Simulated assay, not measured.
Amino acid sequence: MPTSTEDVIRALYEAPPDGFVAGRAAAIAEAKRAGDKETAKRLAALRKPTVAAWLVNLLALRRPELIDELVELSTALRSAQRSLQGEQLRELSTQRRQVVSALVNAAQKLAVEDDPGLRSVKLPMAEVEATLTAALAEPDIAEQVRSGRLVKAATYAGFGEVPRPRLRLVTADEPDEQEEDDEDEEAPPNPFAVAAEPERSARPTALEERKRRAAEKARQERAERRRELKRRLTSARAAEAKTRTRLERAEAAEQEAAHAVDEIEEQLAELERQRIVAQAEVSRRKLARRSAERDASAARREVGDVEAALEDLDADEPDQ
């Protein structure tokens, strides 16, 4: 029997999800009877896991050493990717596939050991694989998996750390970074340039004019490109903010729906309990009715016997 709140929570997430709501309700009732409002509140905040999340929780709770191996491999993969160690990254990627496959098989085996009937049931092992793969890529997801209290499967669009790229225009005569930062500003005229070369003609040659025009065109193109990228960045940031808001609302709506489902399941569990009690009461009253019917039948027979005896007695009396 669980002896602490942590043991109770572990037992809830280690057991199959179909018994989660009833188990949580019983644990909350026990905490309230003990006068422990904080524990009752903490237990009430627990969410029912999906079947895929339960399979991952089984793995984390009963085979934590396998999850530790997964986390170590995750660290090695990120390190190899940051240092661009191609050969090592290929070896680790192969190892990743092998480890994830082994963990998926281990989770399925644990579930079947708990309930052999699951051998003939199609379990969501693809979601389990997706969650373990996401744990390899995201340290936060890895910690959630390691906790053994996952409530839903996780996914990851890519793998590894993706740095934000720097966008910049590359030309044939690319200036230094400092010059590129200041290229929109006109350089002030150098008063010593004319004094240094008094004999040089003020009129540029055709070649110099072409170079000047080419440089001016390149400068204008870079400036236009920078303005375009800034417009795109502003637009992208606005779109990101909108999608982030939509995501937050969607997550809140999902949590609200999950709460509603949990409440309905709790109500169904209570109704089921009431149905069982009512059925027992019906059976008890049915037995009472049958007993009353037997007593009534016996009483009717007794009445009939007495009436017959009286008739016989009257018939035997002499006429007066």
Rank of each mutant, 00 (worst) to 15 (best):
R275W: 04
R275M: 03
I276S: 07
V277R: 12
V277W: 05
A278T: 04
A278W: 04
Q279E: 11
A280N: 12
A280E: 13
E281R: 06
E281L: 05
V282R: 00
V282S: 01
S283L: 13
S283W: 07
S283E: 15
S283T: 15
R284G: 03
R284M: 01
R285I: 00
R285D: 00
R285W: 01
K286A: 11
K286T: 12
R290S: 08
R290F: 02
R290V: 02
S291F: 07
S291Y: 06
S291T: 13
S291P: 03
A292M: 03
A292L: 09
A292Q: 04
A292S: 06
A292Y: 03
R294S: 15
R294I: 06
R294W: 05
R294M: 07
D295P: 02
D295F: 13
A296K: 12
S297E: 14
S297N: 14
A298C: 12
A298Q: 14
A298K: 11
A299D: 08
A299S: 10
A299E: 15
A299F: 06
A299C: 12
R300M: 08
R300P: 08
R301G: 08
R301W: 08
R301K: 08
R301E: 11
R301P: 14
G304Y: 05
G304F: 13
V306N: 05
V306M: 13
A308I: 04
A308Q: 09
A309K: 15
A309L: 11
L310W: 10
L310V: 13
E311G: 12
L313C: 14
D314H: 05
D314A: 01
D314S: 07
D314C: 02
A315D: 09
A315P: 02
A315F: 02
D316F: 04
D316Y: 15
D316P: 05
E317F: 04
E317S: 09
P318E: 02
P318K: 01
D319R: 02
